[in-house]
Every structure is written in structure tokens, then in C-alpha cells.
Computed example of a mutant assay.
Amino acid sequence: MSNTKYILGSFADPDEMMDGIDRLQANNISIYDCFTPMPIHGIEAKLGVKPSRLPIAAFCFGGLGLILGFSLLYFTMSYDWPMNIGGKPSMPLPNFVPVSFEVTILLCALGMVATFFFRNHLFPGRAPRVMDLRATDDRFIIAIDARDNSNHELIDSLLKEAGAVEVKYNERKYVSYE
């Protein structure tokens, strides 16, 4: 069995890369991932990437912030140290709104940053997941798992027909996150 783990097609133009994706999918060749230096509209739908569940996480973090902010105000103003200030009630709900709102935003933002780092494996000491360094500069890369797709000559010809500048057979050199 060969050491080749990925076949990388390097494109200079995003439209040629999208054409390469179409050609590969028309021949039932599964694509591992695409690496681009900028966002490309519609690539997620073409690759079959499911919608993100980050809005659900943001809602949960925001709800937690609202509950914690309101609980803190209730505990300090009504339970632990109730004060009669100008004849106002000890639990004035309209006065709780600004602090509860700010704690909601704070916990939502901090929770989303933590979720982003966790989800993308951006921990200190982890090796980067970069298949080709030119993907961060000026190239558009299609990575195809060589072990799932055995017809390497067909993949090579399809990528070159679509306008690939270079086709490389790559061994994985980074730490696996799967």
C-alpha cells in the first residue's frame, strides 16, 4: 500500500476550482476538503457541508448569561442585602435590564470564542492543519483522500482538465484531529 494519503489539486482561479469540484463529483470521487485563501460563495453547498450549529451554542451562552446576571442582581438586591432606597421596591425589574443585558452579551461573546477555539482545535502546541502553504496566499486547493479513491490517474486527468496548475501526491504531515 502506498504512502500517499492525499491528492492535492492546486488552482490559480476559484472558478476553475469550482469546475474541478463539479468534474470530480460527476465521476463519484469524494472530496476530503477544499482550502482557499478567501471565502468562496456556494462552496459549502457544493461540498455538502451541513449548516453550522453555532447559533444554538450562542443562544445557550446568552441564556446562561441572562440567568446568571438576573440571579446576581436578585441575590444582592432582594435576598442578601435588601435596601429601601427612596421607597422603591427591593426588586425593581426595569433596573435589572441593563446589567442583565450586559452579562448576557459578555457570556455569549466569551462562550463563542471558547467554542470557536475548541471546535477548530486551536489549542497551544497543536500542529496546524495546512496541506499546502500556498492555500493561505494565492492558491485554491482541492484535497482528495487517496485511500478512498483508488483511480489516481483518473483524478489526475480530471484535475488537469479543470485547469489545475499542479497536482501533488501528499503524505499527511500534521497531527490528526479525528
Rank of each mutant, 00 (worst) to 15 (best):
G87L: 05
D22H: 07
E171G: 08
P92R: 02
L158T: 04
V113P: 08
S176E: 14
A58H: 05
M131W: 01
S157M: 10
A114G: 14
F75L: 14
K168H: 05
D156L: 09
E44C: 10
S2L: 12
I155R: 07
A26Y: 03
A135P: 07
F70T: 08
G125K: 11
F70C: 07
K160A: 01
M112T: 10
I7K: 00
L122P: 01
G20T: 11
L133M: 08
P94F: 09
F117R: 01
D80E: 09
K5L: 05
D138Q: 12
S30C: 06
F59P: 04
L66Q: 00
L24F: 09
F75R: 03
N28I: 06
K88T: 06
T36V: 15
V167H: 05
I142C: 13
V130K: 04
S2V: 07
V103E: 01
A58Q: 04
K5V: 06
F59W: 06
D145A: 11
L8Y: 04
L106G: 10
C60M: 14
I67P: 01
G62M: 12
A114T: 10
D137E: 14
I67V: 14
E178T: 03
P124C: 02
E161P: 02
D15G: 07
L64I: 12
Y6C: 02
R23H: 10
D132Q: 08
N95A: 13
G87E: 08
P94S: 08
N28D: 15
S176H: 10
L93Y: 15
F140G: 01
H41M: 08
P14D: 04
P128F: 11
F35A: 12
I144G: 04
Y32H: 15
V97K: 05
R126H: 06
G163M: 03
G65N: 01
T36Q: 05
I21M: 12
F75N: 07
F59E: 03
G125T: 09
D148L: 09
R23M: 15
K46I: 06
K5G: 09
L106H: 02
G111N: 13
T136F: 08
D80G: 04
V167S: 08
D19S: 14
D13N: 15
R119N: 13
N151F: 07
A164H: 05
R126V: 08
N84I: 09
I40T: 11
A127G: 00
K46Q: 15
G48K: 08
D148V: 06
R126T: 10
I56G: 10
T4H: 10
V99E: 00
F140R: 01
S100V: 13
K50T: 12
D15P: 02
I29A: 09
L54G: 07
S71Y: 03
A57S: 14
G69L: 00
L66W: 00
D80T: 02
L107M: 14
D22S: 13
A114K: 02
S2D: 14
T4G: 02
S2H: 11
I31P: 11
D138A: 12
M91A: 13
D15R: 08
T104C: 10
P82K: 09
T104A: 04
I7A: 01
Y74R: 00
C108H: 03
T104M: 12
L47Q: 05
V167I: 08
Y32D: 13
F70S: 08
G9K: 01
R23D: 12
L122T: 01
W81V: 09
F75M: 12
D138W: 03
E166H: 05
L8I: 11
V165D: 13
G65S: 01
P98E: 00
A164G: 05
C60L: 15
A45I: 03
